[in-house]
Design a protein around this nucleic acid. Structure first.
Lengths: 329, 329
DNA sequence: TATCCAGATTGGATCGTTCAAGATGGCGAG
DNA sequence: CTCGCCATCTTGAACGATCCAATCTGGATA
């Protein structure tokens, strides 16, 4: 059985002191080149790896980032989180951090989990996906000076904390302009009830694009909770009342419902969804695609900026989505 | 600024020694009732939480479990992993463990990651999703006596290590029997190339169910790599050559392809997929559903059994899937 | 040759917990 | 009365890293 390799083993092997080995790892510039190489050789020869627990005990930093994994609500948009988490894990790894998962069923429990994670694991930072108006979680974290980033803007106070987001309005605007360029004029919108930041933003993109083209959006939009059945219902309503030739939706779920409602229309009504989920790709639904890997990477950038004390980095990042065209548009 | 609450703070507050506090936490039975309650009170009054890094340094255990998050390959079956991970996080949490994510692009790098995670974070265990014949990862882990569980049987040696799996053959058999009961006789199967444990198992379920009903399965099956386009191609081939009235598929991707191929057939060819992904639910595809939350829970059970030294627990768990009937079958 | 200085290296203390061994006190048996 | 035992609690050391302050080294300068 191999002995456990500690910093002392490396020191003996390289005939230097523990502190010199530590310096090679944490402040290489203050060690003479020759010595540094000798230590490096010893490290790789012995397969030494710094023990994180010991390091953490002294420095108070765990190099751990927490992210929440949600219980796949409707399953369709769940894959967005999945892709984001993968990107997060990959980028965090490159920056020397690891991602720890947690779950929580409500805000209160989630905050209790923060407390626990901070107390027992001394987490360095949190990544929250999605926030709402007056979110108690961000308030709690900010109140304790815990570093965190949200994927999704804090709609009530843009400067409240660092965030990364995708420009939803730009996405729906791009979708709308594509439809306008294809000759459509009566372009409807199916979205979420007023008052959700994300939903209002996506609707605004559609509305502004129509107005910019001289089309009056009045009466062309409908609102509902997210879901396939809801999308289908509203689309049928739209077909009867305003007979649109195309529709932009706030989510792929709504768009899938819309697709079912327009089956058999001639000429076919064009449909564009939002999120470019695997379902959209599978059924050929055109959709606005969010750069999730990029978003995750920028979240890590912001966090490492804060954690490594570099306060010069920007704290807000707004990314542009892309339109994934398929046969429904 | 509040002082950091350590075990010494609690000890002073309860007028006992550090060790007694430690005993209250780790071996309550050796502490006198009265003392124990006094310590408990101090703990909750001060909001004390044991520092994991310090504990780990002494005990060598991190209470951390690693799981791999994959780069959503075709996106459709990716959600299976997603649901599994959520279940894992939830159950691990209840057992006092946390889930750490990692990624890797190939086996060699994955093993390097194991080495790193074990060396720097002293991970307690790994959960691997899916294994293949002669998997170098499981061999590496087993060779080092690292506790791990796989979700998916090791097809070449069932006793090699603890595993949890879903009985794929039972799932396809159930699907096939449902179709037989609906009056179908020429029930085809679209699966993966021979030699993959999972694929062969799912095909066997279909074949045996047909034979049990006195139907000769010869010529009724096709094999291909996973994918929508592949499923469509093979279904067209089947329609031309053997004109099946129903088809069971080894995955939802293949089934979606099959759905496209049969569009317009009359009477409609029945299709049943596998995995019950969100896509299947969205398009109304009947599918075999795996109990992923349950599978994750049993993985945690097996691990804690090994980690807490209870070698009496069974090391293999085979769960039964359920058939999610929708309008395609 | 003595002095100084900057840079490299060293030993000791420390983080918060658990382990191993020792101290205390009460009680019953010899 | 003394001894030993058990239950309970306390003390010192250790885990493996980093921080801090002190010491060493070699070359330049007086």
């Amino acid at each position: 059985m191999a002995e456990k390799v500690t910093i002392a083993t490396v020191a003996r092997h390289a005939r230097v002191s523990r502190q010199t080995v530590s310096n090679v790892l944490n402040a290489p510039h203050i060690v003479r080149e020759e010595t540094r190489l000798r230590v490096q050789d010893a490290i790789s020869a012995l397969g030494y790896r710094a023990n994180q627990a010991a390091r953490q005990m002294r420095t108070g930093r765990s190099r751990l980032i927490a992210a929440r994994i949600e219980p796949t609500r409707d399953g369709i948009n769940g894959s967005v989180l999945d892709r984001f988490l993968h990107g997060l894990t990959e980028t965090a790894d490159a920056a020397g951090y690891r991602v720890l998962l947690y779950t929580a069923t409500d805000d209160e429990r989630e905050i209790a989990t923060y407390d626990d994670l901070l107390g027992t694991y001394e987490l360095d930072a949190f990544v929250l996906v999605g926030t709402k108006y007056g979110d108690p979680r961000t308030a709690w974290l900010a109140g304790r000076d815990v570093p965190f980033v949200t994927f999704g803007r804090p709609w009530d106070a843009l400067d409240a904390h660092p965030w990364v987001d995708v420009d939803g309005a730009a996405g729906t605007a791009q979708a709308t302009r594509h439809l306008l360029a294809s000759g459509h004029r009566r372009i409807a919108f199916i979205g979420w009830p007023l008052g959700s930041g994300v939903g209002d933003d996506r609707r605004a993109g559609w509305r502004d694009a129509l107005r910019a083209a001289g089309v009056d959006p009045t009466g062309l939009h409908r609102e509902t909770e997210d879901g396939i059945a809801e999308g289908e219902r509203l689309m049928r309503d739209l077909l009867v009342s305003v007979a649109p030739t195309a529709v932009v939706c706030a989510s792929d779920s709504l768009a899938l419902g819309a697709l079912q409602a327009i089956r058999g229309t001639d000429p076919p009504v064009s449909v564009i969804g939002f999120d470019d989920t695997p379902v959209a790709a599978a059924v050929g639904l055109a959709s606005v695609s969010q750069p999730l890997g990029e978003a995750a990477a920028r979240c890590v950038d912001l966090l490492t900026g804060v954690l490594d004390g570099n306060h010069e980095t920007p704290t807000h990042v707004l990314l542009q989505p892309a339109l994934a065209l398929r046969h429904t548009a």
